[in-house]
């Protein structure tokens, strides 16, 4: 299952990655190889096996509905490059 340069560009856009032309070619080649390998595994008959989303046999890890202290606003915003009125200020997005 070969991957095209267009696929790479699409995935790069979704991940907001700016790739050079050389990088796009390289990833097209590398990703195709990875998919080829995955394709080989896919040849196995797994029709009687449930999908494995998690490798550990652990289920139902819950917390009770109880509150705990929050961060102060100063701490919460300490990583923000720009702030206004107690909120994070960000470039326009629409």
């Amino acid at each position: 299952m070969a991957i095209t340069k267009k696929d790479v560009e699409h995935v790069a856009w979704l991940a907001r990655l700016a790739l050079t032309d050389e990088e796009k070619d390289m990833f097209t080649r590398q990703l195709s190889q990875i998919l080829e390998h995955a394709g080989k595994i896919a040849e196995l008959d797994t029709s009687k096996i449930l999908p494995t989303s998690h490798v550990l046999p652990v289920k139902n890890v819950f917390r009770e509905d109880e509150t705990r202290p929050c961060l102060s606003r100063e701490e919460a915003l300490s990583n923000a490059p720009a702030k206004e009125r107690g909120m994070l200020k960000i470039p326009k997005i629409i």
Partner: peptide, 21 residues
């Protein structure tokens, strides 16, 4: 009482911004 995946209070409507994180 609390949020979906953490212990922050879920009663935040009308509160000062970014004080429940």
């Amino acid at each position: 009482e609390s949020k979906m995946f953490c212990g922050c209070s879920a009663r935040t409507f009308g509160e000062e911004p970014n004080t429940f994180t």
